[in-house]
Design a protein around this nucleic acid. Structure first.
Lengths: 228, 228
DNA sequence: GTCATCATGTAAGCCGTTACATGATTGC
DNA sequence: GCAATCATGTAACGGCTTACATGATGAC
């Protein structure tokens, strides 16, 4: 779970521990990742060969803050720009970079990990990096989550009927509100699923229309792009 | 956290472990409490004197299933109805009962526990048993939760503005949906808080109107009742 | 000069899960 | 007779938090 998030942010850019934490917070994925969790996790990933680290010299220039331009390919290179200098400062900034093995691991974890993607935490993190998944896996992820919420929702509705006569004011208010929340989640997921299918059909049509040599749907092609 | 839930359900009725789990699931409080958590927790509470257990003979009659009438006082006695019989069956059914010390502990934990009631899990469980809290504490609980959601919401809105330009389709969808969820939670809490204040004012007015001997508001009186 | 923030880590412990072990009762 | 459910527990392990320890840099 944590691993996916770490590999995920490192898929976007090379980062050091402290900054990884900031990113995960900024992206709303993990609001308060403790250092006691983060650093050992990075060490484990490095030992396993999924990531590797290099030292970055302290930023001598004021505000050489990563510009974060919209360029899709440029970000990754930024961190290494000062690497050739001898590391004179003791300011240990261990910047981590995803290895090819790590990329493979990431995509494996992202798709059908041993468990699934049904529970909220697991789903949120996977969805955040869904652009690294092939469309078919993306759709499955959404559908698994929807199925799970449907289960929970049906259970909650049963409970609601049973306990409605038991005059437990606050408990009932809670259950009713939870049911409404789940119904909205369902609607949201349905919207995403519809959009997903539409874009898939759209791709199909286009590829059929242009009569390219590729006869079959490229289901295994990974598109990290970010087009709407 | 778990302790509050256990003491809470035992405040309503005497129950054995297996049934406690069922109740917590039925009430939507803890959907999948594992026995590996439940039984040791009960043992700890018993050791600490908050609860005590007695053995219940196996239900010889078919379906002597607790009738669950609406009577507010009747439920507690049901379990003990067959107690005078010598326990002949080896069917160990350890029924737990809240001790006076346990009731005190429960109310202490429910109100201003070391932490707060800000995070969702903690809040949900406390709200479910809010009828055991004095109105003032109930209001504080709702307001703490609202404050927390407001914080999270503001943070999320900041994030949303920052990352909107970064074209991360799925991440953005997630954040937007979370913001909407939090906004609805806020509205719901506001409704509850308004109702809470209204009922408090109502009580005030009535006690003033009838000119009872009690001059001051009975803020410390606990009303386990369940009137709407 | 001192406070906030940046930066990396270790150690102890809490809370909870999964898996294991055991056995009785009920319904088909 | 067999499966599902009821019923109670133990052992091992996972994931994450808190608290501790350390120190540099930047802002005021």
């Amino acid at each position: 779970m944590l691993e996916i998030a770490l590999l995920g942010v490192l898929s976007d850019a090379d980062l050091h521990g402290y900054e990884i934490r900031k990113r995960l917070k900024e992206e709303g994925l993990i609001m308060n990742l403790s250092f006691g969790t983060l650093y050992p996790a990075l060490a484990r990933l490095e030992r396993s060969g999924a990531i590797e680290s290099y030292l970055q010299a302290p930023t001598s220039a004021k505000r050489t803050r990563t510009p974060l331009t919209g360029s899709l390919t440029g970000e990754r290179a930024v961190a290494g720009s000062l690497m050739h200098q001898p590391v004179k400062s003791t300011r240990n900034k261990k910047v981590y970079r995803l290895t090819p093995a790590g990329q493979v691991l990431f995509r494996e974890l992202l798709d059908s990990d041993s468990s699934n993607g049904a529970d909220r935490r697991s789903f949120d993190i996977r969805l955040a990096f869904a652009r690294y998944l092939p469309p078919s896996a993306r759709l499955k992820l959404l559908e698994r989550r929807r199925a799970r919420i449907m289960e929970d929702l049906e259970q909650a509705r049963l409970v609601s009927q049973e306990t409605r006569k038991q005059t437990k004011k606050y408990g009932n208010a809670l259950i009713e509100h939870n049911i409404e929340s789940m119904e909205r989640d369902m609607a949201w997921l349905n919207k995403l699923i519809t959009a997903e299918i539409a874009s898939r059909d759209d791709t199909t049509k286009r590829s059929v229309a242009t009569r390219t040599t590729k006869a079959h749907l490229p289901t295994e092609i990974i598109s990290p792009g970010s087009e709407i």
